[in-house]
């Protein structure tokens, strides 16, 4: 029990220190917030155009205009959360490995992965989180049924699962720099891999689409990240949801376990940069 309070206190101090830091560089903070909002805005413009010409993404897939907006906003929320808590940290992790800065973290009587993953909280991601929530609420009110309490709770649970899967992927990519050195930046990798999670899984059809859908559901489960919470929110009654939701829990547990394993392997292979 005292263990948990220790971790909670350390986490709070991380959050506090990050906020102090952000407030000393206030103009950077504001620019970051605005520019990520601008990116969201451009995407909104694109989808507004698309829905001038069609009422649904795919034929009878169930992703009509507002369902899709709810999907889009769910993607925003998951991404904002992943960025807020983990992105900067894991990007810095690769630097820590290269420069040997990891040394100090290894000395602390507290889980090293915890320290690495949550050292900096990116408060500027709150702007995207807010944008996501606004779009979500707006699109929910436009749909025929408002979600019930249970649905909202499930949505929350699966958001966390989504963030956890993203996190596992990030930490695996970050840890692998122990062996590979650095080619592309983590951000690049990240951008390209997550493009697959940006759209509903139903769009992956046909000869090429099915294997892709399979691979990104079962091997690298990024398709689950946004799809499951969004489905449970806007299309709760579909028959597929049951097993998908069950599988999502399993995939989350497996990803987290696998990434933990990779992380520990990487630590064992860590060769502190001298001097």
């Amino acid at each position: 029990m005292s263990n948990i309070t220790t971790y909670w206190r350390v986490f709070r101090t991380f959050a506090r220190n990050s906020l102090i830091r952000d407030m000393t560089f206030r103009s950077n903070f504001i620019i970051d917030s605005i520019s990520s909002l601008a990116w969201v805005f451009l995407n909104v413009v694109l989808y507004l155009q698309v829905f001038r010409f069609t009422n649904s993404i795919g034929d009878h897939t169930g992703w009509g205009r507002y369902e899709f907006y709810a999907f889009f906003s769910t993607g925003l929320i998951v991404n904002a959360l992943a960025q807020m808590f983990f992105m900067t940290n894991i990007d810095e992790f690769t630097d820590l490995i290269r420069t040997g800065g990891l040394d100090f973290l290894l000395l602390k009587p507290i889980d090293t992965q915890f320290m690495i993953s949550l050292r900096r909280i990116e408060w500027s991601s709150l702007s995207n989180l807010a944008a996501g929530i606004i779009v979500l609420v707006y699109s929910m009110t436009r749909l025929p049924h408002l979600p019930g309490m249970g649905q909202c709770v499930l949505y929350g649970v699966y958001l966390i699962c989504g963030v956890a899967i993203y996190y596992s992927l990030m930490i695996t990519l970050g840890a692998s720099t122990v062996w590979m050195g650095r080619n592309l930046t983590l951000y690049d990798f990240w951008f390209y891999i997550t493009t697959f999670s940006r759209y509903p899984m139903e769009i992956y059809t046909g000869q090429l689409g099915r294997p892709l859908r399979f691979a990104f559901t079962f091997i690298i489960p990024v398709l689950i990240v946004v799809n499951i919470p969004a489905r449970l929110m806007v299309r709760p009654l579909e028959s597929q949801n049951g097993w998908l939701a069950g599988f999502a829990l399993l995939a989350t547990a497996a990803s987290v376990a696998a990434s933990r394993w990779v992380f520990l392997k990487a630590l064992a292979g860590y060769r502190s940069a001298s001097s």
């Binding site: 005292s2 220790t6 206190r9 350390v10 709070r12 101090t13 991380f14 506090r16 220190n17 102090i20 830091r21 000393t24 560089f25 040997g100 800065g101 040394d103 100090f104 602390k108 009587p109 507290i110 001097s275």
Partner: peptide
């Protein structure tokens, strides 16, 4: 280590100390 620093660069040292307080309980 004289050649590396573990304190948060942009924060007062007191904040890093507080972090250590919580880490070491």
């Amino acid at each position: 280590m004289g050649q590396k620093n573990q304190l948060w660069w942009d924060l007062p040292a007191a904040e890093s100390f507080r972090l250590h307080q919580h880490i070491y309980n």
